[in-house]
């Protein structure tokens, strides 16, 4: 029965593929129609030429990078600590790390603007720097579920206990062990988590908008209200960007510790020479 043509499966797969692909084709087609009567990349050109686009994109890119850095500093030592010293804390830390998936961002930011708002004990939203800090913190919280899982998976694939003993027997301090022994070994896992974080926070709308930050998400919504063709162009670019981030995330998640992204030719030929 395995050799018969799976007609029903083919029909279902084609319908599924159509649902996924038609909106992309439609959006791409729409994005090319800005000039009447011809297909052109005019909408893309007009997006790239605008100063606002550059400024909001760089604002969000910087905020996302900062969130990645802060996330690494918070997550790596914690995951290390839990695995090595206090495994019984694992359920607690895992629960905390999953909580941002349960608490919607709109609820989270609601709490922030009340606790850290005007007239509170720590009025962060009074200054620009304070609000920007709060924004980065919000992005960090959103990214923790993914970052923690990526880092924890990375640590599962190396023997951190032996590495730590080796480092300590050579006189390394704890901080030094984490920074110079553990960190390089889980580098690819961290980079993998970082790409996911980046793809989530770059276009983030809810927190950015409610903190009144000039980020990419609110800019997108504004474009949607003001223009017809540019939003389609932006959607295509966003899709390409998400795709790139996901591919890079996969690539880095599957790298083994110490393995480089592009293997040098010499090592490949040596391997081939060996039987």
């Amino acid at each position: 029965m395995s050799r018969q043509v799976p007609v029903l499966s083919v029909v279902i797969a084609v319908l599924g593929a159509a649902f996924f692909i038609v909106p992309l084709i439609a959006t791409f087609n729409f994005s090319l129609r800005m000039k009447r009567g011809e297909l052109s990349f005019e909408a893309y050109r007009s997006v790239f030429e605008s100063d606002v686009f550059v400024s909001v994109l760089s604002f969000s890119a910087v905020a996302s990078m900062l969130a990645i850095l802060v996330g690494i500093v918070i997550v790596v030592p914690t995951a290390y600590w839990v695995r090595l010293r206090v495994p019984r804390m694992r359920p607690v830390v895992e629960f905390l790390s999953l909580m941002p998936l349960i608490i919607p961002p709109v609820v989270l930011v609601f709490g922030y603007v009340r606790i850290y708002g005007t007239g509170s004990f720590l009025p962060m939203t009074m200054t620009d720097t304070g609000t920007n800090t709060l924004l980065v913190i919000g992005y960090v919280v959103l990214s923790i579920p993914y970052m923690y899982r990526a880092v924890d998976n990375g640590m599962a694939s190396i023997d951190i206990a032996t590495l730590t003993e080796a480092a300590e027997s050579l006189g390394a301090s704890r901080l030094r062990t984490i920074a110079f022994v553990i960190f390089p070994n889980i580098r690819s896992a961290i980079v993998s988590g970082a790409f996911l974080t980046f793809s989530i926070s770059l276009g983030e709308f809810v927190i950015t908008s409610l903190l009144n930050r000039p980020g990419f998400g609110p800019y997108l919504v504004q474009m949607g209200q003001d223009y017809a063709y540019q939003p389609a162009a932006l959607a295509i670019m966003a899709f390409a960007f998400t795709w790139t981030c996901m591919v890079l995330m996969e690539v880095f998640a599957n790298l083994k510790p110490g393995q480089r992204l592009l293997r040098q030719r010499t090592s490949t030929s040596v391997e081939k020479a060996l039987p």
Binding site: F20, I25, L220, G224, A238, M246
Partner: peptide, 27 residues
């Protein structure tokens, strides 16, 4: 594709569907 599409949400997704099934969408 699912890995990408499940992360393709938010504002750009809205734009894509306006271009597809909106009043002047291609479909």
């Amino acid at each position: 594709f699912s890995g990408v599409a499940s992360n393709f949400a938010g504002v750009p997704l809205a734009f894509a569907f306006i271009a597809t099934l909106g009043r002047l969408g291609l479909v």
